[in-house]
Computed example of a mutant assay.
Amino acid sequence: MERIIAVANQKGGVGKTTTAINLSASLAELGKKVLVIDLDPQGNTTSGFGIEKNEPENTIYEMLIGDASVEECILHQVVEGLDLIPSNVNLSGAEIELIGVDRKEYILKDQIAKVQDEYDYVLIDCPPSLSMLTVNAMTTASSVLVPIQCEYYALEGLSQLIYTINLVKERLNPDLQMEGVVFTMYDARTNLSLQVVENVKNNLQQNIYKTIIPRNVRLAEAPSHGLPINQYDPRSAGAESYRLLAEEVIQYQREEQV
């Protein structure tokens, strides 16, 4: 059974794209067939895999407005075992162009349904806003993974995101689940990081992944080289953490199926 995971948080700078890139690359490294969908107009997931944003002839934008099929938009084997549907700034106009379109909340779902059987995992990197693009991701997904930065305002906006997830579940996608929360940018030297983790655990009735992603220089450097961390520096703390998270995601699925 393929799994479609939306990586979402309407707060920017929480490690959402970093998680989408490196979790998907780690799943591919573990032998899974993975499709990554860059649904953010900034296109950082696209460039993070070494693809020049304006190079692909067809992107997620062309697919959403009906100018290209999903098959025409997929870039194959960007990393071994991993395909990508790229994005660029054109996507920022899609919201307006989709006004008045029938079933506009389901455009992505209908397209991805044609290819999802070919993959074990589909990961969608959502934009940092609760927009029509994010709603499309959530109607397509089976679950939502929320990266949370270990900082003072971590919980701010999270209740709004959970409200949106519940609303989509109620009205558009009854199968949608909260995959869980993953902590990012953890700094073991500060008490604050520890307090944030404890605070979220105490206040959130959600699955929280045991793996915590550390604040890591190599992790921050990797996107500028167009490589996921497991290729840029396979032995770094960041690479090890995302491998552990990938194993946990796979394990979580096994437990769900039991």
Rank of each mutant, 00 (worst) to 15 (best):
A20W: 02
P223C: 10
P174S: 08
P147Y: 13
L84K: 00
G81K: 06
Q160S: 09
V70N: 07
Q149H: 10
Q149I: 01
V146W: 05
V36K: 03
I148H: 03
I165R: 00
E118C: 08
A239R: 00
Q116V: 13
T18N: 13
S236N: 13
N199K: 13
I165L: 08
L39D: 00
H225S: 11
L108I: 08
E240H: 09
N230M: 07
I60E: 10
M138E: 05
D102V: 13
P214D: 06
T211P: 09
N216S: 03
D117A: 14
N202K: 06
V14N: 02
T139M: 05
V200Q: 06
K11T: 12
V168K: 01
R3N: 15
I37N: 08
E179D: 14
I21M: 15
G100P: 11
G31V: 08
I208P: 04
T140L: 05
G66R: 04
G180F: 10
V196H: 00
E151S: 12
Q205F: 13
L84Y: 02
S92M: 11
K201V: 07
E248K: 05
D120T: 08
M132K: 03
Q111P: 03
S129P: 11
V14I: 12
V115M: 08
T59S: 08
Q251V: 02
L158P: 00
P128K: 12
G43R: 00
N216H: 01
D175K: 15
A188G: 04
S241F: 07
T164I: 05
S131K: 02
I96W: 02
K169H: 09
A154F: 01
E52D: 11
L161T: 08
H76A: 11
D125Y: 05
E221N: 10
Q116N: 15
L176W: 04
R103Q: 13
Q42N: 12
V181P: 01
G50A: 05
R103S: 14
K32V: 06
S26T: 12
G50C: 04
T164S: 14
L123K: 03
N199T: 12
Y252R: 10
I96L: 14
V196S: 01
E156I: 15
E255S: 12
I250F: 09
Y252C: 03
Y153N: 12
E247T: 09
R103I: 14
E95M: 05
E118L: 11
N90C: 12
M178G: 01
P128C: 07
A141I: 03
V144L: 03
